[in-house]
Design a protein around this nucleic acid. Structure first.
Lengths: 147, 147
DNA sequence: ATACAATCTAAACCTTAGTTTAGGTCAAGT
DNA sequence: ACTTGACCTAAACTAAGGTTTAGATTGTAT
């Protein structure tokens, strides 16, 4: 497979694939005599994990580190394993933060629904905590511990 | 409160606060006669939501749009409400993607635990799907639909 | 009055993650 | 041999989100 086909299969642009190659994420990609990149299924498999790591917030340089470890063989198994445990933590933290954001977002939805009903923000802006419905007050309070 | 105190309270650097101000996120911040920014509790409250939106992936320019709407008053209530519904969707999509990443990550953890036990990646690399434990095979398959 | 820390601005700089451009090569079909 | 689409590289460019620098001002404490 050539770069165009890989681009279609992965959804990454051709220039991004070349960028990844240049930065050491695509290790030992074959080339034709003329210098054209020849990808196989293993490369595609590697791209899968690259995309997954990228999507979950890992930096290019960290992914390169991982690919370097892969090339280095069995002596780096422990490092790679630890990386995946660390990345699990990172992802869970991200999810946690997003769930917390959601609380403030939902409070604001309630707030603006009330403003919409009234045709003005005034009333709801002047309300105090005790006037909020219980579930909304809870959202508000939880959100304000964090943000 | 001056910028240094706000920096400590929000965790944003002083230069970031000035950057936000310059880009229209901090609207109608008072200034002393000498030109020094004077923040009050309402400003701090606005920063809370700015930080929350930022953290959940909204761009500076979009946050500015929201702050502009806030300044414009009641005619923009609907736009602001819609923005919060849209942001809820965005966040849920992000959480979804992260949960999917987690499946591939956990498969890799199993993979490298096996490699670690064996002292080599060889055996586990050569295994085929049927040899995986049921739960791991499921992880692998689910992860490979996506990535 | 003077010292001093904290603040101010504009402008340059930085990093990350690519994209675009320009000028060339490769290889398959005619 | 020639055309054509896909590919190649290096280098410049872009955008977002800040950070750093330099030089000036503010305002509080002695």
């Amino acid at each position: 497979m050539q770069i165009g086909e890989i681009s279609k299969k992965t959804g990454l642009s051709i220039s991004t694939l070349r960028y990844y190659d240049k930065h050491g994420l695509l290790q030992n990609i074959d080339r034709s005599n003329g210098g054209i990149r020849k990808f196989d299924d293993k490369d595609l498999e590697a791209l899968r994990i690259i995309i997954c790591l990228k999507t979950s917030g890992m930096k290019i340089s960290e992914i390169k580190q991982f690919m370097d470890w892969c090339s280095k063989g069995d002596t780096t198994i422990d490092k790679r394993l630890n990386m995946f445990y660390q990345q699990e933590k990172n992802i869970n933290e991200q999810i946690d933060i997003l769930n917390k954001s959601l609380k403030l977002i939902k409070f604001k939805q309630w707030y603006y629904e009330a403003a919409k009903r009234d045709g003005t923000e005034k009333n709801v802006k002047d309300m105090n905590l005790d006037d909020y419905p219980d579930d909304i007050r809870k959202l508000y309070e939880e959100a304000h511990i964090i943000w």
